[in-house]
Amino acid sequence: MDSSGRVVLPTAFEDADIDHLALLIADMLERLMAHNDRIPLLPESLTRFHSRSAPGISVLEYLRRIVRFTKVEKSILLLTLHYVDQMCARTPLFTLSSLTAHRFIIASIAVASKGLCDTFCTNSLYARVGGISLTELNVLEREFLLGIDWRLTCTREVLQEYYINLVRTDSAARFTIPESESFSTSEDSDADMDSGDAESRSPSPLQMQAQAQGVRPPSTGTILPDTATLTPQVPQGPTIEQNMAFAALQESLGRTRSHQGQNHPGPS
């Protein structure tokens, strides 16, 4: 720890403790989810990743469960953030929320591990660890690959930038990286921000998403700013399947609220 009580992390993400990475990633995703949960859900926004209700496990505990039972690699955890940016940039109506995050995470880790690692688990194990059926994971896997246009790879430098910025933006300021080394991979972007040129850079997926929905984005954007090479898909109207799923979701939420009201009656 340093003099302020913060945990000093190694410069390279490969040397970091995997639980520290899980803490940092969960912090970022939880903030993104809290923002997106305020955006009204529309029928055309429904995807295969939507569940009828938010899972009863936090993102952090979900990541820890995956780490424990699948021995996922550190780079694969960080790639989840890259895939969120990819998906949001290509599909503006997609939002990572409390209804989509868990399915997105398990699909991301399963696909990336199988595509990029020498050793990986079977879909049956990923499904059990993720708390979904094998059939559902297979469907999510195909949907995920289509959503990111099958672009699974990412450079080590990009992952390092995610790592550095996760430490920078940690909401609890629990961690630090030695000042002399921490930002050596992103000096140009630091110089842009210090000189006031940050506004001229491409908006992050979170900012684009918020603008499209008419919602002001929070001051902490997504991690990686460069989305200029991505081609967003043109938003389409809701399909019959989406309308039916939306109606079923609304009915499910209505039953949940009614049940909660019966269990917690108001004052007489």
Rank of each mutant, 00 (worst) to 15 (best):
E199A: 14
E199P: 03
S200I: 14
S200R: 12
S200N: 10
S200E: 14
R201Q: 15
R201Y: 08
S202C: 12
S202L: 04
S202Q: 12
P203S: 09
P203R: 11
P203C: 04
P203M: 07
P203Q: 07
S204N: 07
S204H: 08
S204I: 05
P205F: 10
P205Y: 07
L206V: 05
Q207N: 06
Q207Y: 03
M208R: 15
M208L: 15
M208E: 03
Q209F: 02
Q209L: 11
Q209M: 08
A210I: 06
A210Y: 05
A210L: 02
Q211P: 00
Q211C: 00
Q211Y: 10
A212H: 10
A212F: 14
A212V: 00
A212P: 04
Q213D: 12
Q213K: 11
Q213S: 13
V215N: 02
V215P: 00
V215W: 00
R216L: 08
R216C: 08
P217L: 07
P217H: 03
P218W: 04
P218A: 10
P218L: 08
P218T: 02
P218K: 10
S219F: 07
S219P: 01
S219L: 12
S219Q: 09
S219A: 13
T220H: 07
T220C: 13
T220E: 08
G221Q: 13
G221N: 05
T222P: 00
T222S: 14
T222M: 10
I223T: 07
I223D: 00
I223E: 02
L224A: 01
L224Y: 14
L224P: 00
P225L: 11
D226A: 10
D226M: 06
D226P: 05
T227L: 04
A228L: 04
A228W: 12
L230Q: 11
T231D: 06
T231G: 01
T231Q: 12
P232V: 02
P232L: 00
P232A: 03
Q233M: 09
Q233A: 14
Q233P: 00
Q233S: 15
Q233E: 07
V234H: 03
V234G: 01
P235M: 01
P235I: 05
P235W: 12
P235H: 03
Q236E: 14
Q236M: 10
G237D: 15
G237F: 08
P238W: 13
P238A: 11
P238S: 14
